[in-house]
Simulated scan of single mutants.
Amino acid sequence: MSSDTKARIQAVARELFAQQGVQNTSLRQISERLGITKPALYYHFASRDDLVRSIVQPMVDDCERFVNACEPGVETRRLLEDYFDVIWKHREIIVMVVREMSTLAYLDLGRRMFEWRRALIGLLIGPEPTREGQIRATVALGGLADCTVEYAHLPLEQVKPAAVEAAAAALGLT
């Protein structure tokens, strides 16, 4: 029962954070939306910061797991498709971050995101990249991430094929 309540709190908080921003969402709003008391919410999360960290942590874990599991020589289109799947899974969190950039401070998210991007760029363009290759890879990965934000409301099967194809084109693949 307790983990179910915790999951419900996180789901409502994700929704409100994405709509209003983290700073504009109070724990009272979350508890009222859930129909629970504020002390009941505090039982599960000591503060809004704890709640935000609990929401962001699964994305951090999945992205780090993904980047660490990628091996040099992985097929480029496969890497793009798999990366899209990971970030699509966490699109609500990405929307939340884009809406309120201060969210990047949680779990040192800004630094981590740049590290993930650099590692993936290295995998996409190899150990001796040209400046053009770096720029193309940045556009490809950034474009995939932007699609998860801009088209988060659409079904995956409508977004992923076009997004991956555009990322591949940015890399010069046909």
Rank of each mutant, 00 (worst) to 15 (best):
V56R: 01
D82Q: 15
K89E: 06
G126S: 12
T103I: 11
P127A: 15
R8P: 05
I94L: 12
N68D: 14
R118Q: 13
A7V: 07
E165Q: 11
A145K: 11
M59G: 10
E157T: 03
Y151C: 10
L144S: 06
I36L: 02
H90A: 08
R48H: 11
F66Q: 05
L124D: 03
D49H: 08
L104N: 10
D146P: 00
Y43E: 00
V149P: 07
F66I: 04
W88S: 05
F17T: 07
A13E: 05
A168C: 09
R136T: 07
E81W: 04
E92C: 11
L141D: 02
H44Q: 06
E132S: 15
T76V: 14
Q134P: 04
F66W: 04
G172T: 06
E64L: 10
K6I: 01
H153Q: 11
E92P: 05
D82M: 12
N24L: 15
E64Y: 01
V159S: 12
A105L: 14
I93H: 01
V98M: 13
R65V: 02
A152S: 12
D61C: 02
S31F: 00
G143I: 05
R14A: 11
M101N: 10
P39G: 11
L16N: 09
L156V: 10
A46K: 07
N68L: 08
C63G: 04
D82H: 13
D146N: 14
Y83P: 00
L80S: 04
V67T: 15
A163N: 08
A69F: 06
M113S: 14
Y43F: 10
V164D: 01
V12G: 04
D4S: 10
A170Q: 08
A152P: 06
E92V: 12
M59W: 08
W116S: 06
L123H: 13
F66R: 03
R91G: 06
D4N: 05
Q20E: 13
S31E: 02
F17S: 03
T174F: 12
S26I: 09
R48Y: 08
R8Y: 04
E150A: 15
G172F: 06
A46F: 07
S3M: 10
I121P: 01
W88Y: 10
V149K: 03
W116Y: 13
R48P: 05
R112P: 05
N24K: 12
E165F: 05
A145S: 13
K160Y: 09
Y43S: 00
P161M: 14
T148F: 13
A119M: 14
I135L: 15
S47Y: 04
I30W: 00
L124M: 07
E157I: 09
I36E: 00
R8E: 15
G122E: 01
L173F: 10
